[in-house]
Design a protein around this nucleic acid. Structure first.
Lengths: 194, 194, 194, 194
DNA sequence: AATGAATGAGAGTTCATTCAT
DNA sequence: AATGAATGAACTCTCATTCAT
């Protein structure tokens, strides 16, 4: 079903991927509360019943979306370089985030909607927290190493610094791109050794 | 209908205040997407139709909520001291925020729900941005003065620093209270002159 | 809507009565499995949402129907004479049933549909069994007294006889009326003293 | 698809038999109204589409079920002894019914569901009435002969007596087994010569 | 200012059935 | 003979809003 000749047929997981993608687009536009099964189906170009064939109900849909987002973030993470001076790694991490913001703004909007909902929805929380945690851990790690190498201030609290960084990054999500450079260099100054 | 005696107290704007208050409680519990006119009316102890007499539709309700929140934030702001060494003002500002988080967590939840929605809803954005801006300006101002007095690093970008501070504060909203102290001192270290 | 002065408003329980009545008619026609909320609403001449205002969901609707039927059967029972020779009472009971079958065939159809469903549905069982039991007890009682008075065979098992009578009566529900007389006299012969 | 070896066994009518059997089991559990094509297919271990290949639609399915039930009842009937004193035949007939009730309660539940539906559904009525009639005729016949031999009361109405017997039997379907003996002997006493 | 009742529009979900392979 | 995927039609239920009083 997946091979060359017959590929005009969107079978199995492809449909689920299409659905996830359409749903994400809609969430980015109208938020979680504006998400309608019918609209997703329309966007994919299938019947609502067909949609329910692939994704049985709204809860499963949300899980699918969260997973789909998770995979993407994971792929991004896997692609990051992990060696070099901590300060550079820190900047690279921010740079990467900034680019994601520009190239796929949808991703961050959906991420933020899911995190918002995670506060109330156990299922989503279970799927999403690992991703938030991984990100946080990554920064913590960088700070810890950087303190040793002397890249970052001695006495810096790596956990708190990681939180500040993430907060700044997320809070910046809606802002114009130009400001991001200023934010980045200010974060660097905030933590590096003077 | 039940307490005959009090009935004349609760006319006009009092009702609107009750409605706003009930709505805020519900938003804090279930988020915007879980807000139901009927539940608000029930919480106030009136009929849905009566509710619509006071607040004609959901848009007006949202405006009411935003205004109510705005008034509260404004009152908070007005109560803040505005003189003294910038570093102290900065700490006082954060301290005040931390206490608000503990005493009225509902307020911050609603604020965050409204800001989320502001991204999509023009009306809300118009009401909310001033409040976010005022807060941002306040920090910017403190940083500007602090740079002059030597409390904060020379070369500090006041605007970026204000953004980082706000991001950190908002991002911390759900976290346990104990961590807040660490965050606060880390923020101070991030910006003050070493 | 029907009468002259103020009664044109079908308020409160009247609506529930109308709904119960329409639902019973529909069950008699198409059985339980063919019962549709929309059709009931249409039959009453109201919107589906209005129907749900009065009867929140299908389970409540079924309870309403069962109760409505129960009330009717109860009224019937209350109207029956309870004194006189047991044999006469027995015949009167059957006669009354036969007339109900002719005048309100719907009632018995609905009763039988409800009893069928009672086998699977706990809620219905709880409402309906009392009525079946009362009827059964009534016959048992008549037989017990009749044995003493010598109207019925000595050695007759009153409980088994009651079951036979009810089985015969219910089983006859769809049959042509004329046959009922034969059935009745055969039942009398089956149990009376020879 | 999974057990390659057996695949050629289960062609044609075997499939139909499997489907009928699965459907009957499901009807016994959840009633007619709870019968779902998908569940039948699942129970048989085939795809819904495959099911529709063998049994084109729900009407055909019901016919199939009725026929399958009919065959079973017919086999039962054929196995019954048809000679001996009428009173004994009568008791044997009841005894056989009682045993069927215990050994294959499913059969009687399905029979009763089908008879209920026969009241509304012409197709089912056409298939089922013969079976009900045959049973009824069998009792009538036994009574007619028994009157001649003196086993049963002179003046007994064979048709009405047959109806009473069947009503009692069917009505007893859900009741505990122990009571059946009492019912049986009471029926015997009701019709035999004293 | 308040209410019970009503409503239209739509939401998610289910189901028998069909299509392409 | 069998399948995965697709579909239209329907169903129950919900919700913001309105109407008559």
């Amino acid at each position: 079903m997946k091979q060359v000749i017959k590929q005009h047929y969107e079978a199995g997981d492809d449909r689920r991927r299409q659905i996830a993608s359409a749903a994400r687009k809609l969430i980015a536009e109208k938020g979680f509360e504006g998400l309608r099964t019918r609209e997703i189906a329309d966007a994919v170009g299938i019947n609502v019943a067909t949609m329910h064939y692939h994704v049985p109900n709204k809860e499963a849909l949300i899980v699918l979306i969260a997973e789909s987002l998770g995979e993407e973030l994971e792929a991004d993470r896997a692609a990051m370089r992990r060696d070099g001076p901590p300060l550079e790694l820190f900047e690279a991490e921010l740079e990467n985030y900034g680019q994601r913001l520009q190239k796929r703004p949808e991703t961050m909007k959906v991420f933020s909607e899911l995190m918002q909902r995670a506060g109330r929805d156990e299922t989503i929380r279970r799927i999403m927290t690992p991703f938030a945690d991984q990100w946080h851990n990554r920064f913590t790690e960088i700070f810890e190493q950087g303190i040793k190498t002397g890249d970052f201030r001695p006495g810096l609290n790596p956990v708190a610094a990681a939180s500040i960084t993430m907060g700044a990054a997320i809070h910046h999500r809606h802002k114009p791109k130009q400001e991001f450079a200023a934010l980045k260099s200010e974060l660097v100054n905030a933590f590096r050794k003077h």
